[in-house]
Computed example of a mutant assay.
Amino acid sequence: MTDMPDNIVMPFEIKPLGVRGRIVRLGAVVDDILHKHDYPAPVSALLAEAVALTAMLGASLKFDGKFILQTNSDGPVDLLVADFSSPSGIRGYARFDADMVAALKEPTPQALLGKGHLAMTIDQGQGMERYQGIVALGGVSLTEAALGYFQQSEQIPTRLRLAAGALAQRGLRPEAWRAGAIMVQHLPRDGGISPQPFDSGDAPEGSKEEVTEDDHWVKARLLLDTVEDHELLDPMLTPEELLYRLYHEDGVTVYPAVTLERHCTCSRDKVGDLLKSFSDDDRAHMNSNGVIDVTCEFCSTHYQFAPEEVEPAPEARAQAQ
């Protein structure tokens, strides 16, 4: 038996319906990201969904750059960050209040996030303009917030499912985290888009125009709505098999997948340069028994410096003054 495909983003197309999409399967990559920290299970699930969503959207970049997803909110998880660096790097981090998480009777994604905003940023590199879309958080899941982003920023008919969970396993860890995602969008080859209900807010109350959705798009999204979490997480169910279950009637074309890997951009040199940019007072406060100890929030790598290693050069100090 061949190995099941994992840690991938696979593009696909349902040509008769004018629909394109991507499916994400994350195993060891997301498990490694989560086990770099001691997250409660609900926080792990939320971050795993954020990583899957970021991988799905970031893998569509046609240039060397980054796709960054970040939430800022007043909930128990007040910060989520996940970023994709082309061509295949993914990482993620969550900041949370352990007491607030433990106090939740139902730690749903909506309750964990609270009110705030979700920002999605495309960074094309140094000297290039950034593009950012922002949607409000407040009683919505990551899936619902992402759909709001597509409706407001791109106005492309989109359907999306996210799933995350821990599976029992043998070996070093009693359980392994997995995440999955699937998205379809109506992008007919002729360049048109399907009609969709839209309210600009300018029309008088009660006069909202009724718009009939494209039948092909309705079929595609209704079929996607039948996907269950276990189908996105099952390591024994290939992406091709899941797509066949959904769209065999119309036929699915799959394209070469992007293979993902956990990565982190931190290094001793980068951390040292950052410390040199701090003030003397800031570095003095970080000095503990003659050592400055820094831990990367993403990968939990520890870096230690002697104070004299991170003193700015005289010319840099002169420029700062």
Rank of each mutant, 00 (worst) to 15 (best):
L246S: 12
P109A: 03
H186P: 10
R161E: 14
E213D: 06
Q151K: 15
Q132S: 12
A257K: 12
R22P: 13
R22W: 07
A48V: 04
A306L: 15
T253C: 07
C264R: 08
R221G: 10
V140M: 08
D97T: 01
K115F: 14
Q126S: 05
V24A: 11
G201D: 04
R22Q: 12
H248Y: 11
P107F: 01
W177H: 11
R22L: 14
R178E: 14
M56Y: 06
S267F: 08
D269R: 08
H37P: 11
T158E: 13
H230E: 15
M236V: 01
I8M: 07
S277P: 08
P42M: 00
R159I: 12
A146S: 14
S207A: 14
E106Q: 08
D280Q: 08
E129D: 03
S86P: 00
V30A: 05
A284P: 06
R178M: 15
P42T: 08
E231I: 05
E205L: 14
M10K: 09
G133Y: 13
L118M: 12
D123H: 00
R20I: 12
D99T: 06
I33K: 10
K62T: 13
L187Q: 09
T54S: 08
L46Y: 00
L80K: 00
P314M: 12
F198I: 03
G127V: 10
L69V: 04
L79M: 15
I122M: 11
T54F: 05
A55K: 11
D229C: 08
D74P: 01
I33E: 04
R91Y: 10
D38M: 09
V81E: 13
L34Y: 05
S300N: 01
K276P: 10
L113H: 05
G251T: 00
E209S: 07
E308F: 09
A257S: 04
D199I: 07
K276H: 10
P40I: 08
E129K: 09
T253M: 11
R268N: 12
T301V: 10
L17H: 00
D269K: 02
D202E: 14
D234K: 05
D97A: 05
R221K: 15
A28W: 10
P235E: 06
N289T: 00
M128Q: 02
H302V: 06
Y303P: 01
K270V: 14
Q152L: 15
S141Y: 13
P174N: 10
Q110P: 04
F63W: 05
E210L: 03
R130Y: 02
K219M: 07
L26T: 13
